[in-house]
Nucleic acid binder design. Structure first.
Length: 282
DNA sequence: GCCCAGGGAATCG
DNA sequence: CGATTCCATGGG
């Protein structure tokens, strides 16, 4: 009989330990451009803030350790955030019938799709447009420091209502350029109830995308990123310049059929593959 | 100085 | 419709 994927989390003093987890790598997951608030402390430990909590996470032997947290926070926040319950090995096995996809998974096989706060994901990817990851991180950091609430020695990601009360000029310290008015528009429409987050979670993907595209500054790609990283929609397949190049070159523009049910996850494997291997540029 | 960065809106034809 | 151009900012 086949092993059933069932990683076990237990408390140890002030830590939570996850045993028997497969396909989980912190660098692959936290440094891949899906989230912008995680920093390496050393080569096996990362620190970040999400859902009003700070977390240090690392490895011990073959286990993943969440430091200075509780089993309650793990169950309420981090288990979903790190997508622990999803069996990635089964997905990798399913798509590996395609040789190219198999190669792609081997570049970043420990990558997991983080289930981030919807507003944070949406706002972060509005900031991401025509921008580079280093600078996105800087703008997001200044956004939190200026307008978030203190969380230990860090700051929460400011909620939409907080940002909606500000003006474009108020966002000047972020140095976010032309994106400032997009951030304000998003915050205003989200906090005003004009954007139905529940619809984004449950409606057919095209309807969900159109809902987010009511916001000025949200096009197809930003909407798909928000859906994938913030609304638990793994069928979303954001097409940035790297993906377009890779798709044309590797698959003649068409995603292999076996990858379609996991499109968003496969997108991340391909994104990594395209950026770390020498695909022909143009 | 020049280039471009996980795009999108505005403005063309 | 599709194609171009502009948008702010800053690191390489």
């Amino acid at each position: 009989m086949k092993n059933i994927y069932n990683p076990l989390a237990t408390a140890r003093n002030n830590d939570v330990i996850i045993k028997d987890i497969t396909c989980f790598n912190l660098k692959d997951t936290l440094d891949c451009g899906q989230a912008f608030r995680w920093k390496p402390l050393d080569d096996r430990t990362w620190i970040g803030t999400a859902f009003q909590r700070n977390l240090v996470i690392g490895y011990e032997d073959n286990s993943v350790v969440l430091y200075n947290t509780t089993l309650e926070d793990y169950k309420n926040i981090w288990e979903d955030y790190f997508d622990i319950k999803r069996d990635y090995s089964q997905i990798i096995e399913a798509i590996s019938v395609n040789k190219i996809l198999k190669d792609a998974t081997e570049v970043a096989g420990g990558l997991r799709i983080l289930r981030q706060d919807p507003w944070e994901a949406l706002c972060s990817f509005i900031i991401s447009q025509n921008n580079n990851i280093l600078r996105i991180k800087g703008i997001v950091e200044r956004l939190c420091e200026n307008f978030g609430a203190p969380v230990g020695d860090s700051y929460s990601f400011p909620d939409a209502a907080t940002i909606a009360a500000l003006s474009v000029q108020d966002l000047a310290p972020l140095r976010s350029g032309f994106r400032a008015r997009y951030i304000i528009d998003a915050a205003t429409k989200v906090s005003g109830g004009e954007i139905d987050f529940n619809l984004c979670r449950t409606a057919p993907i095209d309807d969900a995308r159109n809902e987010l595209m009511k916001i000025c500054g949200v096009g197809i790609k930003v909407a798909d990123c928000a859906l994938l990283f913030g609304f638990d929609r793994i069928e979303a397949f954001p097409k940035d310049v790297w993906i377009k190049r890779a798709m044309a070159q590797l698959f003649d523009g068409e995603l292999p059929q076996e990858a379609v049910p996991y499109a968003g996850i496969v997108q991340q494997y391909i994104f990594h593959y395209a950026r770390t291997t020498k695909l022909q540029i143009d």
